[in-house]
Design a protein around this nucleic acid. Structure first.
Length: 489
RNA sequence: UCCUCAGUAGCUCAGUUGGUUAGAGCACCUGACUGUUAAUCAGGGGGUCGUAGGUUCAAGUCCUACCUGGGGAGCCA
């Protein structure tokens, strides 16, 4: 039973973030958190305590004469505790304030023989195998605080601009999104599924009465919302059953998909560029301690690399550069010309030759962004044959109003388009591409009744976090990555 | 899915042309030290060499398959 009187008497818990910048010193405080390190001698012990509120630790100074040997023994790396003590100006170097401990309650010990986190650095690959504990490291603390800040900033950005957050379904009965392989959702007995007369699986007996899958995109449903609410956005999990094994792909990832009525492709690009800059500026203004930590981490990591593999800029310089200039905007056709006239193309250095009509390979995108323009690039007006059915057809009959935003080191961070709003053109494209019209009747009806020009795009949330944090592998910017052959935790 | 590299102590790695009892640093434990900053110093414990086969008098080392991880490619956000 909880003793409420005692609880009221307790010193109120302060977050370490606030204690470290507190100007009110020489007062009793309480802090709770997890021990990062302990050091010291027979007389005094120093404990670095972290509670996740900041990358920084607060130092507890423990006069050993005031505590029993057993109490001190329990305080090891990883242990959780509550401390009451005086917040004082630090006598040592390296921190301005510290807590002179009076009372310590250890909530949970962490056996040093088996606790996997050490004081010294671990590889990211190792930490991925202990994803349940990696939050307790400086790096992942920083990454997930930034991830939160970016999610919050996205909602703020849209809310401040008259966008409505629309919850599009996670289970979909439509197979027409065409954005990749899907995960089936079913309650049928997989050992012994019901069959139709011609021997196929009888999905009419399944939970939803039809084949259903996890969503690969909320876009089509977002378009329905935009044709009444004007501006909407989705922000939710997205699932692709592709066998992709790269540092840039996940089977379960988060995507932001704004959809805007009365926006043409240029309005769309303006919004996308403004939003990316807003988010990066937000991170610089709100997460600078974490960014500085990650920046130093990268500098340390690169010390062992040969000169030609070192980055020209630090993380924060890289983020500031994005804010400085307009993104380069050029058409696919112009990009093909740039690539054809490039040195690697003339010397036959590209593995895939450049020709109008090809889908740009990552070597081409990297050349444009990292070598030629050295800043983010927005490509527009792609050949219609390499893009999705719903994209607005240009008058030339060859291209569609698609746009991709390419970022240095990341590749495609945003893909979007103006949508085809003319019923006949859209219907023609649907049948040309062999998409069953019976699945698309609801989508087509928005073009039948009160159709409007509209646009939207998809922003890969984890790719944004990769860029902002400077992390190299997408599995390190989502708490529990879902990838082929891995659904641990 | 394809190409490529790797898997040896809790972690990061070394281990020679196949050859005696498989090493180091860090971590951990014990001890020393009156304010440390990834504290320092001395000592100690700790191994199914990814798994399964094979070659050989002898395999951490060579061969085959598989598993796991990294990098690159494709698919895309």
């Amino acid at each position: 039973m909880i003793n409420y009187n005692t609880r009221l008497m307790e010193q109120r818990r302060s977050f370490i973030k606030d204690l470290l910048v507190s100007t009110e010193i020489d007062r009793e405080v309480n802090a709770k958190g997890w021990v990062r390190t302990k050091r010291g001698n027979k007389q005094v012990a120093f404990v670095a305590l972290n509670d996740g509120s900041t990358i920084h630790n607060i130092q507890l100074v423990i006069d050993l004469t005031n505590f029993t040997e057993n109490q001190i023994k329990e305080i090891t790396t990883g242990a959780s505790l509550s401390v009451n003590g005086m917040l004082v100006k630090s006598m040592g170097q390296g921190q301005s304030v510290e807590i002179q401990a009076k009372e310590i309650q250890v909530y949970g010990t962490a056996d040093p023989e088996t606790y996997p986190l050490q004081k010294k650095g671990h590889t990211l690959e190792f930490l991925r195998e202990i994803a349940h504990l990696r939050f307790r490291t400086n790096t992942f603390g920083a990454v997930f605080r930034i991830r939160h800040a970016m999610a919050f900033a996205i909602h703020k950005y849209f809310n401040d601009r008259n966008f409505y957050y629309l919850h599009t379904p996670i289970v979909t009965g439509s197979d027409a999104e065409g954005a990749g392989e899907m995960f089936r959702v079913s309650t049928l007995d997989i050992e012994n599924p019901p069959k139709t007369e011609d021997g196929k699986i009888d999905f009419t007996q399944d939970f939803f009465g039809k084949e259903s899958n996890l969503t690969v995109s909320g876009q089509l449903e977002a378009e329905l919302g935009a044709t009444a609410l004007s501006n909407v956005y989705t922000f939710g999990p997205t699932f692709r059953a592709e066998n992709s094994n790269t540092p840039r792909h996940l089977a379960e990832f988060w995507m932001i998909e704004p959809e805007m009525a009365f926006y043409d492709i240029h309005d769309n690009m303006d919004l996308a560029e403004d939003m990316l800059k807003y988010l990066i500026r937000y991170s610089l203004e709100n997460c600078i301690d974490d960014l500085k930590f990650l920046e130093n981490r990268l500098i340390e990591e690169e010390k062992n690399k040969p000169q030609n593999e070192k980055s020209e800029m630090t993380l924060i310089e890289k983020l500031n550069l994005i804010l400085k200039d307009d993104f380069v905007r050029l058409t696919y056709t112009e990009a093909i010309e740039v690539l054809k006239n490039s040195t690697p193309s003339k010397k036959g250095k590209f593995q895939f030759p450049v020709e109008w009509g090809i889908d740009l390979q990552s070597e081409h995108e990297r050349y444009l962004v990292e070598k030629h323009f050295k800043k983010p690039v927005i490509l527009v007006d792609y050949p219609k044959d390499i893009k999705a059915f719903y994209m607005k057809q240009n008058d030339d009959g060859k291209t569609v109003r698609a746009m991709d935003i390419l970022f240095p080191g990341i590749g495609e961070i945003i893909g979007g388009s103006q949508r085809e709003e003319i019923y006949d053109k859209l219907a023609a494209r649907i049948s040309e591409m062999g998409i069953p019209e019976k699945d698309m009747w609801w989508y087509l009806e928005t073009r039948k009744y009160g159709t409007v020009p509209h646009s939207g795009f998809g922003l890969g949330f984890e790719r944004l976090i990769l860029f902002v944090t400077g992390m190299a592998n997408i599995r390190d910017v989502i708490p529990f990555p879902r990838t082929p052959k891995n659904a641990e935790f």
